[in-house]
Nucleic acid binder design. Structure first.
Length: 648
RNA sequence: GCUGCCGUGGCUCAGGGGUAGAGCACCCCCUUGGUAAGGGGGAGGUCGAGAGUUCGAAUCUCUCCGGCAGCACCA
């Protein structure tokens, strides 16, 4: 038998007979490692411990201490154990796929009856039985024909489809524990007892389409989460709770920002507090854009279908549009209008008024454009996905040569804005021509080429997202990362030669001839509604001072202080600070609690001493301590803090 | 839109075939109290809408509307 050399991560080398397995090496190194081993990495490939090693190799043995590998294995095996539990309880349920996802896994089943919460409890219990049985995991490589024959005999049509999809040359691998068997790439644990019985939880059920396609059959998906030990599971569940606390829908109630109601699904009723934040953000954006050479315009919201037919929206986008008709009884003319879902066609109308010269380009037309889109009922979500919203939209009409400079200028604006709003990093995605598109390949070559040249010249990293462009042109999408690591796609920059063509935009060039301009669609925030949702969640409601709806509450401790409280509020307001008095007949504890829950950044408490000394007792949100300071000093300091970042 | 769950006073929620309950908020009274809920009293709901079953429906059934979670969608 040939001898091979196994090199361990610390550089140590050991000699074994060819065909030895990772598990045997682990046991040979030490008895305890043999027991603790979960899986291994052979020459960089994540493998079962039972995989024979036929030639010299680098080998790493993984135990529960290797977090990434251990979690992958635990979650993956938990998925299999769950599928087995389900089939043991309901033998007629068909299995499909069960991948590992963030924090856990899911498995899709084909079953007529949906799973109920009681079912979940029953499945969990059966899973613990399987774990307690410590069934060894065994694997074999099968031929495609055998695998298909097996799954046809077992009446598992989805597995047949999966086997057929495995590329030629790749192993078709079967796994067993107990009598249960599944098709899987692996690797898996050594036995089912290595999944911690007290560190997983089935979290929810939902429908999910086979192959993610709404045209296909809907399956029943069960989600689970799994960790290495009970504490990690507890920590995770705690984190989920914390994330729920920063849900903008919940905070909106606590802070009295806005509400939604049945009569206008997906349309926001902004309350005074929420609208104050909205306006602070809008005013800021307006200043930033004007500073950057944009001209602001305003275009109609209800527009005849003729324009949408010309732009292509009637054809490509109608199912997402609100269509309006005038009541026949009263109308003496009959026309069909649509609420605008986008601003671009209207902006071209503004551009088209009067003959444009190359000297007018680039022309940057901005609009905080109110748009309406008929979103699927299940898509709506607080402020994040609404049917009526306002974009910080603008269209730049320019020549091909100007695209690069405009792109650079836009990214500079976007970086500045994100930074001002508390987001330090963002990712750029470059989306190229999609399957369904208008325009010729030659036109796409031009727009894609121009956009990629622009992003390259800026020298920032970007990822390519093939086929994800808009139907009229390629785009850059900008994804920012929030305080708890979630990514949000907000900004966009799109190159379009189609719409200027369809709506016949033109300019007179140096040569005296008429030319088509390019049109750059761009937004920094995306929609104000959504961006405010992101801001609220990012700051967990504790908005920066300049954005806070109520910046200061001045509260009296005794009613003798009421008069001075009013005076201080007037002083603050004179400096443009959003201040309110709280002279209610309540104790200071009560007032502090209420305004803290309302996320007011600064509370100024005033008692007899403060009145006497012309001071205030200042307490900042989140701090336990308060400090007594001269009123004038506090007003001046807060005035500084209230200044928006672009005016500092 | 699809699957599941949910819809009770302003908010959070309990109840559940015999015509409604709590806490908080609100109003009134007492209390003037130093940094996250002082005390007492009062008012407030045809239980999402419509239809059906029943002697009787908020409670059971169906349809619709809305919400939540996920899926699909997000040019």
């Amino acid at each position: 038998m040939a001898q091979i050399t196994i090199t361990l991560p610390d550089g140590a080398q050991r000699s074994y007979e060819a065909g030895i397995t990772g598990g045997e090496v682990a046991a040979d190194i030490s008895k305890s490692l043999g027991k603790a081993a979960l899986a291994c990495t052979i020459n960089g490939e994540f493998r079962d411990l039972s995989r024979p090693i036929e030639a010299d190799a680098d080998l790493a043995i993984h135990t529960i201490k290797d977090e990434a590998q251990a979690l992958e294995l635990i979650r993956h095996d938990a998925a299999h154990i769950m599928a087995r539990a389900v089939q043991e309880i309901w033998p007629d349920v068909k299995v499909t796929i069960g991948p590992v996802i963030a924090n856990g896994w899911y498995y899709d089943f084909d079953r007529e009856e949906p799973f109920t919460p009681d079912d979940l409890a029953q499945i969990e219990k059966r899973m613990r039985d399987i774990i307690a049985a410590r069934d060894p995991v065994r694997t074999e490589v099968w031929s495609r024909a055998d695998a298909i024959a097996h799954y046809e005999a077992a009446d598992e049509p989805f597995k047949v489809a999966l086997v057929n999809r495995i590329p030629e040359g790749e192993d078709i691998r079967m796994y067993w524990h107990g009598d249960w068997q599944d098709l899987c790439r692996g690797p898996h644990l050594v036995h089912t007892g290595q999944v911690p019985a007290d560190a997983f939880k089935l979290t929810r059920v939902s429908g999910a389409y086979w192959e993610g396609d709404a045209k296909n059959k809907q399956l029943q998906r069960i989600y689970g989460v799994a960790f290495r030990n009970r504490q990690e599971l507890k920590d995770y569940l705690h984190m989920v709770e914390e994330a729920e606390k920063r849900d903008h829908r919940r905070l909106a109630k606590e802070m009295d920002l806005f509400h939604l109601q049945e009569e206008a699904p997906g349309m926001v009723f902004w309350h005074p507090n929420g609208w104050t934040v909205y306006r602070a953000l809008e005013d800021y954006m307006r200043r930033r854009q004007i500073e950057d050479g944009y001209r602001e315009i305003r275009t109609p919201q209800v527009v005849d279908r003729k324009l949408w037919e010309a732009s292509g929206h009637w054809d490509k986008y109608r199912e997402n549009m609100f269509i309006t008709e005038i009541d026949e009884e009263h109308a003496n003319e009959k026309r069909t209008n649509a609420l605008k879902p986008m601003n671009c066609p209207c902006h071209v109308q503004v551009y088209n008024q009067g003959l444009k010269s190359y000297r007018d380009l680039p022309l940057r037309l901005a609009e905080f454009g109110s748009c309406h889109r008929y979103e699927a009922s299940g898509a709506m979500h607080g402020l994040m996905r609404v049917r009526g919203f306002v974009q910080d939209d603008a269209h730049i009409f320019c020549t091909q040569e100007q695209i690069e400079a405009e792109c650079a200028k836009f990214i500079q604006l976007l970086s500045r804005v994100y930074k001002d709003l508390g987001f330090d990093s963002f990712k750029i995605m470059f989306s190229t021509r999609p399957e369904k598109r208008i325009g010729t390949d030659a036109e796409w070559d031009i727009t894609e080429g121009a956009l990629e040249a622009a992003i390259k010249s800026i020298g920032m990293d970007y990822e390519v997202d093939p086929g994800e462009g808009a139907f009229y042109g390629p785009k850059l999408d900008f994804k920012l990362t929030d305080a708890i690591g979630r990514e949000w796609q907000c900004g966009t920059f799109q190159v379009d030669s189609q719409l200027p063509d369809r709506l016949e935009a033109e300019y007179v060039g140096e040569d005296g001839e008429k030319h088509r301009p390019f049109m750059l669609h761009r937004a920094v925030l995306g929609s104000f509604e959504r961006f405010l949702g992101i801001l609220i969640e990012n700051y967990a409601g504790k908005l920066p001072f300049w954005l806070a709806p109520r910046q200061v509450v001045v509260a009296s401790i005794v009613s003798d202080a009421d008069e001075y409280v009013t005076e201080v509020v007037e002083n603050l307001r004179a400096q443009g600070i959003r201040a309110e008095a709280d002279t209610r007949n309540e104790k200071i504890n009560y007032k502090v609690r209420e305004h803290s829950l309302g996320k007011v950044p600064v509370i100024l408490a005033i008692g007899r001493q403060e009145v006497e000394n012309k001071t205030v007792s200042m307490r900042r949100l989140g701090e336990k301590q308060s400090s007594v300071l001269p009123t004038g000093e506090v007003v001046a300091a807060l005035k500084g803090e209230a200044t928006p970042p672009d005016l500092v």
